[in-house]
Simulated scan of single mutants.
Amino acid sequence: MARERYHHGDLRTALLDAAEALVRERGADGWSLREASARTGVSPSAAYHHFASRDALVHALSERVLARLGDRLIHACAAAPSQGADPLQRLIALGRSYIRWAVEDPAVARLVFRAGATDPDSVVTPHPHEVLGAELDRFAAAGGLSAAARPGAEFTVWAALHGLAVLLVDGLVHTDDERAADLQVERLVRAVLAGLTQEETPSAGWPALRSAHTRRLAGRQPGSEPTTRGKR
């Protein structure tokens, strides 16, 4: 019965589910496409109809996880205090959700943020940094960021949040409980945004940062990447 269901189109999802479970059990590199196939009850040759290699499976899994994270961040912003109307509280809620996700699911988080997990051909909707960008636009429109401070702010905020996430996940810093972590995230977000409002922008502007996501948005044309917005 299971094999017949996979034959009719469920195998791709089943392989992704199996791969995600293996990542949680063994880490990003401690498993094979053959093992993922065995968990779904099919042969490796059947899996190859959907994924040409283990790397292709990891790539697809990374896209799925990032889209799921994007949805999570959207919901966190909407559920922020004041019914999600305060742009600053929405950004704080986004930061808290990001940190909790990384701490709760560290193996999967490590997988999707490693180099090569996604590339300019990856289609991720909603992308986490599109969510972050929209929230920074909302914050800027409310007067929280100047026009000069807005360009590239995604990368600055992401760097701070991701740095804290890595420190917590790797056990280099510790908090007493989730409440303490939430307060630390709030302090971090407020500090970064305050710093952005007070920075002195170089006359030529800040250098552009790029990622697989920004290269995709730019159509992978040399020199055409956005210089005012950065998304993973």
Rank of each mutant, 00 (worst) to 15 (best):
F155W: 10
A148G: 10
R68S: 15
L132W: 13
A56W: 03
V103Q: 11
V112N: 01
P120V: 05
A147D: 13
A60L: 04
D71P: 00
V58A: 12
T156L: 11
V108E: 03
V108F: 00
G144H: 08
L61T: 05
V58L: 13
G70R: 13
A142W: 09
H129M: 12
G84K: 04
V58Q: 13
A149F: 05
G143E: 04
G133P: 05
G152S: 06
V65I: 15
I99S: 04
R90K: 12
A159F: 13
G144Y: 05
E154H: 03
G143P: 02
H162P: 00
P87Q: 07
D71T: 11
A102L: 09
L61K: 07
S97M: 09
G143A: 07
A117L: 01
S82M: 11
P120L: 03
A85H: 08
A78V: 06
A109H: 12
R90V: 04
G116K: 12
A148P: 01
A80C: 07
P126G: 14
I74T: 04
F139L: 10
H162I: 00
L145F: 09
P106N: 11
V103L: 14
Q83V: 05
V103C: 14
A76I: 08
P81H: 09
E63A: 04
W101Q: 14
L88W: 02
